[in-house]
Design a protein around this nucleic acid. Structure first.
Length: 281
DNA sequence: CCCCAGTCCTGCGGGC
DNA sequence: TGCCCGCAGGACTGGG
């Protein structure tokens, strides 16, 4: 499931497309339901064919292709989407080929096993409106202890649930939320309001540490094998998971308690009951 | 403000 | 062996 580290890895892998012109957008024949595109594929095609990709950025869990003239193509892989330069995992779920000028890396591919991903074209005005709407909070890697507190400390929500709120902080998903809280030694059911100054500092440090290490190891490829980088290679951070999908296994930090799974907001949470003390009261 | 259930979508694994 | 069901969860929506 692409979260910040996986999307950042994809973004880095896409650097060869910078400076290229979009020559053709090809919808791949696919037996599955088409993915959501806004506006329609035809309209996107009309507007961006012939444009040059000036930069590849990331906004939370979205890849942003910055085009000359100010338009932005936002690719949001959601659960099972990949943005690739070569060799998709299979051809059955290949959705889109964006043909580019130049000699190498002439195709930017969008592959999506579940089809939950979305592709949106925004002009400068729509982009400004999106930024103003607060739909997408500040990037998790750009937060400070102070900004984290300012955005979350007043909430009555459990910290695990709040970390998943992209309006508060962008980029953290279900996997990294559990990992981050374990590093920070904070129980996932602690209410934001009850966290101490020391806990906020540890939380911020853990966000940076976990996300940065995961980026260094090119993200997590789970047993379903879906996530790959832009060159269709697996990540390596899954070998460093402390709690995620480790229910019943001994915690590697305390070497004593076993990892517990519970459900918050209909989502699995994993934690160590010894390292992460439950909230008092 | 916040919570919850439902929705989108497909593949996979468990149970029978 | 095959079928059905539930699960995976990011983001959004509608109702409370």
């Amino acid at each position: 499931m692409p979260e910040l580290p996986e999307v950042e890895t994809m973004r880095r892998g896409l650097s060869p497309v910078v400076g290229r012109r979009i020559t053709r957008i090809e919808k791949v024949r696919c037996r599955h339901k088409p993915i959501t595109m806004r506006p329609s594929l035809a309209a996107i095609r009309r507007r961006i064919t012939g444009r040059t990709i000036q930069a590849v950025e990331r906004a939370g869990k979205r890849i942003v292709l910055c085009l000359d003239g100010g338009d932005r193509l936002l690719i949001h892989p959601r659960m099972a989407g990949l943005v690739l330069l070569h060799d998709p995992p299979d051809t059955e779920h290949l959705r889109l080929r964006i043909h580019l000028s130049g000699r190498e890396a002439r195709k930017l591919l969008y592959w999506d096993r579940r089809g939950l991903g979305t592709i949106e074209l925004l002009d400068a005005k729509a982009l400004a409106a999106l930024n103003a709407s607060g739909t997408l909070g500040p990037d998790a890697l750009q937060t400070t202890t102070k900004s984290l507190r300012r955005r979350l400390a007043g909430s009555r929500r459990a910290i695990k649930v709040a970390l998943l709120d992209q309006r508060a902080i962008a980029g953290i998903g279900n996997l990294y939320a559990s990992e981050i809280l374990h590093v920070a030694r904070i129980h996932p059911e602690c209410r934001c309001r009850q966290l101490t100054a020391a806990q906020w500092r540890r939380l911020h440090a853990a966000i940076i540490e976990v996300l940065q290490q995961a980026i260094d190891l090119e993200g997590s490829t789970l047993s379903d094998g879906t996530y790959r980088n832009a060159l269709n290679q697996a990540g390596r951070y899954q070998n460093h998971h402390r709690v995620y999908q480790r229910t019943g296994q001994v915690c590697t930090t305390c070497g004593d308690a076993r990892i517990v799974r519970n459900v918050q907001s209909q989502r699995s949470t994993f934690f160590c009951p010894r390292c992460q003390k439950p909230p008092s009261g």
